[in-house]
């Protein structure tokens, strides 16, 4: 009697959350699966009374798309480069921050600032930094002026300015900019998590290591890293998931064209592909691409978890 009443109450309290989750999470997932299985599904056409054939045609088309393969390659490349680099850098910075006492809070804040800054805004700043717009080629005195600070620095050290993102830039240069930008953008969150993890490690392990005469590098690899491994696993797994959803960072630097002016879409990603399909009013294709992306993230995460089972010490 009491129990059933309690249950009724519990459902009542849960109702608002359940309703919201149903409308904004569960139904969209179900609907995505439905749309992906209707060949060439378009909301507009459906409203006009068109019917669509049931089948895997959307998936076949997506995979055959040359653009899709390019998007997939860009996404995977960005993940493979940025996640290890940013994790390692974040680890070094966190360890350094943890070992200094004065100014720790101030430095922590500085390193955390990018996290609270809009990524489009950061992208625009990066675009300006890597820019060569404003350069003068072949004026009377043959002066070459580069406007971007990165090229200024390169020139200062006697290097040749690189066409990072402008007309005629190379794919390599574009990707380098993207990797630098994404790594920088990913650092604050990772530093925060790892610093928290470091501060929760019992200091006595380090005293014990001193007694055991362990050199610093050995303390780092044999004690700090293993004891931090749960946080590292978390940071790497969420890093990969975030990496596969990369989109805004490209927009931030290259704009909606997703590439340098002469090769629009060169740096497009999976999520970019999904948006493109949506704006082309092809929800069927977009849904199929979204499910493929979901599948990839699922597989990568499962691999991550499998690896971490052996390497992570909880």
């Amino acid at each position: 009697m009491v129990e059933s009443k309690q249950q009724w109450k519990a459902w009542l309290y849960l109702a608002p959350a359940i309703v919201l989750l149903m409308v904004f999470t569960v139904w969209p997932i179900v609907n995505t699966v439905r749309m992906s299985l209707l060949e060439g599904y378009s909301g507009l056409k459906a409203a006009g009374g068109a019917t669509f054939q049931f089948g895997f045609g959307n998936f076949e088309k997506v995979i055959q798309y040359r653009r899709f393969v390019q998007c997939l390659r860009n996404t995977v490349l960005l993940c493979v480069w940025t996640v290890p680099i940013s994790t390692f850098l974040a680890l070094l910075i966190a360890v350094a921050l943890n070992s200094i006492k004065p100014l720790q809070k101030a430095l922590q804040t500085i390193f955390f600032l990018p996290y609270v800054t809009n990524s489009i805004a950061i992208g625009m700043v990066f675009a300006a930094m890597f820019n060569i717009v404003g350069s003068f080629y072949g004026t009377q005195n043959e002066i070459i002026v580069t406007a971007g600070i990165i090229n200024n620095v390169i020139e200062f050290f006697g290097g040749k300015p690189v066409n990072w993102i402008n007309y005629g830039s190379s794919y390599m240069a574009n990707m380098t900019v993207m990797i630098v930008y994404i790594v920088w953008n990913a650092l604050p969150f990772k530093i925060l998590i790892l610093l928290g993890g470091l501060q929760s490690i019992n200091k006595q392990y380090y005293e014990a290591a001193k007694v055991d005469s362990a050199p610093r590098s050995r303390v780092f690899w044999r004690i700090t890293v293993p004891l931090l491994s749960p946080m590292l696993a978390y940071v790497i797994i969420t890093g990969f998931i975030g990496g596969f959803k990369e989109y805004t960072s490209i927009v931030g630097i290259f704009g909606e064209k997703m590439g340098p002016p002469d090769d629009a879409g060169r740096l497009n990603t999976m999520v970019g592909f999904i948006y493109d399909s949506l704006s082309a009013n092809n929800q069927g294709r977009a849904s199929a691409a979204a499910l493929i992306l979901f599948g990839i993230i699922l597989v990568v995460t499962l691999i991550n978890l499998q690896v971490s089972k052996k390497r992570v010490h909880y």
Partner: peptide, 28 residues
């Protein structure tokens, strides 16, 4: 401490939790 060549047993032992007993003993 590193160069004093002492052995110290801490009050709560401070065994490295991620290492086996063997690895703990081998560490020094």
């Amino acid at each position: 401490t590193e160069n004093r060549g002492i052995g110290l047993v801490f009050q709560n032992y401070a065994l490295y939790p991620h290492m086996t007993v063997k690895q703990n003993i081998l560490f020094p």
